[in-house]
Amino acid sequence: MRNSLLNGAHWNSIEGENIMREIVIEVKDVMKQFPTGAFLHKKIQVLDEITFELEEGENLAIVGPNGSGKTTLLKILATIYLPDKGSVKIYDHDIFKDISKVRDMISFVSPALSFQKKLTLRETLKFFSGIQDSNIEDIYPFLEEIGLDQLMDERLEGFSEGQKAMTRLAIGMLKHPKILLLDEVTATLDVRRKEEVIDYIDKLDAKLDLTLGLIDHDPMVVDRLCHKILLLRRGGTILRFANVSDLFHEIPYRYDVKVYPRKPLKTKVLDSFGFPYEKLGDFVRFFTQSKKEVDEIHDKLFEKLEAEEIIEFSTSGLSLEDMYFFFLAKET
C-alpha cells in the first residue's frame, strides 16, 4: 500500500488492484486531556496515542467501556473539541486550520444536542436548512417515512424522546454531509423505529456513499452499518482497530447460553454437553458457534430442566461488551 497526494486530497492505492480510495479521516497520535479543579490545574487523560485512517465509504464503529473516550473522540471528529496533541484531518483539511470547511462536510447527531423547544419542527428545520444552505424539501421523504411530516407545525417541546431523536437525525441529514457522526442515535428508539432508522441510514449510505462514524451498543447496528471497529480501552487508548468481519471471526463463539443450576454441576456433567464453557458464580456460560449448536444445547438443557437439575437458562447473541472483554482478556 502506498500513500500519495492527488488533487490536494490524500489517497491510498492498492498495488496491482488499480483501486484508489480517498482517505477521508486521518487521525494521528491524538491525545486529549480535560483540565479539572478550581484552577484547571489537574488533568484527566481521556484519549492517548489514537491513530487510524478511514477511507471513503468506510463506516466506523467506536466501541469501549464507559470512560474510554468514545464520545470525546467523536466530538473531536465533529470539531466540538480540539485535541491537545496530534492531528486530525478530514478530507485532508486540518481541523485546526480549516475548521469551517470541515464543519461544512460533517454532521454530528447526538442525544446531547438539543434545539429551541419553543420553535416548531418547521421553524427548526427551516433554520438549519438556512445555515446549511440546503433545501428543506430534501428531508421530506425521511420525515414522511417516520411520520414526522404530520408534526411540522408542532412545537418541539411536545415531542417524545423518540421523535426528538428522529428530529436530530433529520437535521443531521438535511446538510447532505460527506461524513455522518452518530452518537448512540438509536438508544432512545423502540425496536420498530430503530429498524426504520437503520434502514434509512443504510439506504442513504448506499446512495450517497457516506462515511459513518458511530457509537452504538447494539451489535446488530454495528454489524449492519459498519466495516471497521475501533476498540478503545478505559483510559482512551486503542485496543484494536480492524474490520468488523475479521474481529467477529477471531471470536470463537457467536452465542452464549447462561444456565442457572439448582446445585453446582459437576465438571463431568458440564463436559458432557460438548461445548466450551466457563463457571461464573452461581451460573455457567456455554459458548456456541451457530444457531444449530444453540438448538442442540437447548435440547439437553430441557432434559435437565425437566429433571429439575437446573432452575432456568437464557440465550443471547454476542454483544459488543463480550467482544471488548474477549480482546482485553486475549491481550492480558
Binding site: 470539531t79 464543519r103 444536542l113 438539543s114 437535521i171
Partner: peptide, 13 residues
C-alpha cells in the same frame, strides 16, 4: 441551558 450550542457549532455557527 437549552443544550443548543453543540448543534450550532457543528453547523458552522
Amino acid at each position: 441551558a437549552r443544550g443548543t450550542i453543540g448543534f450550532l457549532l457543528v453547523n458552522n455557527i
